[in-house]
């Protein structure tokens, strides 16, 4: 059917917008890079034994890099929510919905666009880590699994954020949702700190927080820790469930205004 063609057309639009609006892209790199520069620099001066005791490794940047990349997939969610709100406000959604293109194509194109935007950060962040002297191991399979993990995380978050913004035409809503969700999700994961020193209730949240799972997979690669492949299965389940919710909401609530 025309669904696939419509998806491809809409996805191409999202990709073109990523590089035509390079400034917005640079903004998404800023937070993780700033984290690496400032936290990395200040913590690298700590006595080695403290670092090892607390983080389990003397390499703080190597420790926090997977956490930052996982957390940055939250911003893909914010972006997808923002883009559907803008499309509604500028009437672009109307223009799409007066064609036979199915709503599912619109939904998938937003998710895929957001995930693409998120994954563009991976090489940039790896390069930044290399520049700060992190020795990245050569582990092709590991990197593929890591990227798959980030992709699943991005699919999950952008689906949920899209569902939340599906009926909104207020551009402040996505920002509001981001403020309410992003920081708590980051702090209740192992993105910044190891779970060992968390209180029991935070540990309980961290153990089901998908950001933790993507972080641990990344750490497995960067710090040469072994990890269990069920982590990827958990993320796949998270992505599938979120996508199902997002699709249901899109079918029911994606209207022109």
């Amino acid at each position: 059917m025309s669904g696939l063609g419509a998806f491809w057309g809409l996805y191409k639009r999202e990709v073109v917008k990523i590089y035509r609006r390079a400034f917005a892209l640079v903004m998404t790199f800023m937070q993780p890079i700033i984290w690496i520069i400032f936290f990395g620099s200040s913590l690298n001066g700590m006595p080695r034994e403290y670092l090892v005791q607390f983080f389990g490794t003397p390499n703080y940047i190597g420790f926090v890099l997977p956490g930052q990349l996982a957390t940055s997939m939250l911003s893909t969610g914010t972006f997808s929510a923002m883009s559907i709100v803008w499309d509604r406000r500028f009437g672009f959604l109307k223009k799409i919905l007066v064609t036979p293109a199915p709503r599912e194509a619109v939904f998938f194109s937003k998710v895929a666009g957001a995930v693409t935007r998120g994954l563009v950060q991976v090489p940039v962040m790896l390069a930044a880590a290399l520049a700060f002297g992190v020795a990245l191991p050569l582990d092709p399979v590991g990197y593929l699994e890591w990227i798959a993990a980030l992709m699943l995380l991005g699919i999950g978050f952008s689906s949920i954020y899209l569902a939340v913004a599906m009926k909104s035409s207020d551009w402040q809503h996505p920002q509001l949702v981001a403020n309410v969700m992003n920081l708590p999700l980051m702090f209740t994961s192992t993105a910044l700190f190891p779970r060992t020193f968390y209180p029991a209730w935070m540990r309980a949240i961290a153990d089901v927080n998908p950001i933790t799972f993507a972080t641990e997979i990344g750490r497995g690669v960067v710090l040469n820790d072994p990890y269990t492949p069920t982590l990827l299965g958990y993320l796949a389940a998270f992505a599938a469930a979120s996508m199902a919710i997002g699709l249901l909401v899109a079918r029911r609530f994606m209207t022109a205004e």
Partner: peptide, 17 residues
């Protein structure tokens, strides 16, 4: 506005098949 005329037309073409 971010797309040129060709890209706007292509999108419409794909939406309409």
């Amino acid at each position: 506005d971010d797309l040129n005329a060709w890209e706007n037309l292509e999108l419409q073409a794909r939406l309409q098949g």
